[in-house]
Amino acid sequence: MDLRVSSYFDRSKKVNINVNNMKIEAYEGECLAVVLFVNKIKKLRLSPKKKQSRGMFCLMGSCQECAVLIDDKKVISCNVFIKDGMKIKVGDFDKQQNKI
């Protein structure tokens, strides 16, 4: 079941994004945090001390929990909008962020 509600708005064109080398379909301009959530990619990063999985929480740019890595930089996914070919990394940032 597509979790998209299409009664009031039409999406723009279909695009593909890459999450940890997995292809995910979405529509251009959709909110990344939401797209990840509805595609059941809910575990975005690890908590600092206990290394527990964390994910989208407030969707308002306040809690900072929904951070992902794009181009090796931490960004909060609720402020990111889908573009074709976007490459995202989720999971253990310590292992993901590039070392020289």
Partner: peptide
């Protein structure tokens, strides 16, 4: 409450009324 999948009620509202998604079935 920190389990991914636990979200704010306001977050859910924004998802519904601004992004036009339901979070899950």
């Amino acid at each position: 409450w920190t389990i991914p999948g636990v979200i704010g009620l306001a977050a859910c509202t924004v998802m519904l009324k601004s992004h036009h998604f339901i979070p899950s079935k």
